[in-house]
Design a protein around this nucleic acid. Structure first.
Lengths: 207, 207
DNA sequence: GTATAATGCGAGCATTCGCTCGCTTTTCCT
DNA sequence: AGGAAAAGCGAGCGAATGCTCGCATTATAC
């Protein structure tokens, strides 16, 4: 048999299979969380649904918590992606346009897999994940603060950190509660009204 | 054997002791939740800390969930008491004064046993308690809505339910995040600033 | 082709948990 | 005093869970 080239020797095969296994496990965890809730999500069950053995599960995730954390990370990354993109797009817009976009985006972000979002928000005991949640909040805060800083001339004199804190908290809460209150509040018309009103409040506050 | 008198026959003795037992159990549950978190709060442990046997525990609480629910109810009742009182006091005040008071109260209410509040918010899987939380939110919403209705002339034309939803969500979120962010944000000065700013935002929005 | 390492397997262990049940102690009533 | 009812007790059961470990299977290297 011919020689195998020196490059790319020892991790291909390993990755092809194990990557798939890891993905299947995370996906299975998410599905069980949505379908049966946190309490019913045992490692045995997760492995079963993923079509993987418990033993293999524990080769890639040291604990059940790690598995759930992976699901949370994936979800958070999705949301952060949206938020980052939105804030980049908004960088050159005046405050009123920017806030409107951000409010819209906030609701949209919460609408990604709302069932999973609900389970993560309501059923997952935040044990150890505190760091992650904090980092998440921190990044959002910093991004928004940076934007506001660049638009300071449109604003009244105001402590930037306080303003950011209040605006982010409020927008997030409206988006969160809107989505959690079920599909009733998610009619096109309702969403538009909420975006209008929240934007009005925040913009009015900032300047 | 003589007849047992019709009035107050069968619950006196029961109440002196059992009242104390029930209280001890609820108190112990709260303490364990704060000290060790939800996961460590087993019924055996709760009974032990309460100085009561597991058997007795199950005479008064049909399940662990019921015990936790009792703690939540107690906490919610405390908060609702404050909120109800505040809204009564505020009924005759103009919007700016009223909102300021409500924001202050919201933070104060969240400051009742903040550690317990944090555990309840972050660690308790909301399973079955959904109804209670909904009822709680509902009552707050209705109280605030009623106040705003009585002050409509001071306000711009606006959908009352939407306005209530946005204001309550925002105020609650600011209070919640303020308290959860730890004692750093709770200096006298900081709190005053937050109250000022949040009040400004909400009042500006409403009129 | 064969040795070696990577990956996967799953019965089962140790532990914990929620909860029951047969019994004792305390309180009340007469 | 005496007996019935209320309250309390706690060893322990059955079920479930997170996780281990010795072995089987598959891929890679040469």
């Amino acid at each position: 048999m011919a020689r195998t080239p020196p490059t790319k020797p020892r991790k291909n095969a390993l990755q092809a299979r194990s990557r798939a296994t890891v993905d299947a496990l995370v996906e299975a965890t998410a599905r069980i969380l949505v379908r049966d809730g946190f309490e019913k999500a045992s490692t045995n069950r997760i492995a079963e649904i993923a079509g993987v053995s418990v033993g293999s599960l524990y080769q890639y995730f040291p604990s059940k918590e790690a598995l759930v954390a992976a699901v949370i990370d994936r979800h958070n990354e999705e949301i952060m992606g949206i938020v980052r993109t939105a804030l980049a797009e908004v960088a050159d817009l005046p405050i009123d346009k920017a806030v409107r976009k951000l409010v819209t985006i906030a609701i949209e972000a919460h609408r990604i897999d709302p069932k999973l979002h609900r389970v993560l928000a309501e059923q997952i005991p935040r044990t150890g994940q505190l760091k992650d949640v904090e980092a998440f909040n921190r990044e959002v805060h910093d991004l928004v603060r940076t934007y506001l800083e660049s638009r300071r001339k449109e604003m009244r004199k105001i402590d930037l950190d306080v303003a950011t804190f209040i605006c982010v908290s409020s927008i997030e809460a409206v988006a969160h509660n809107t989505v959690l209150n079920g599909p009733e509040m998610l009619s096109e018309k309702m969403v538009r009204t909420l975006v209008d009103e929240t934007t009005r409040m925040v913009v009015g506050y900032l300047r």
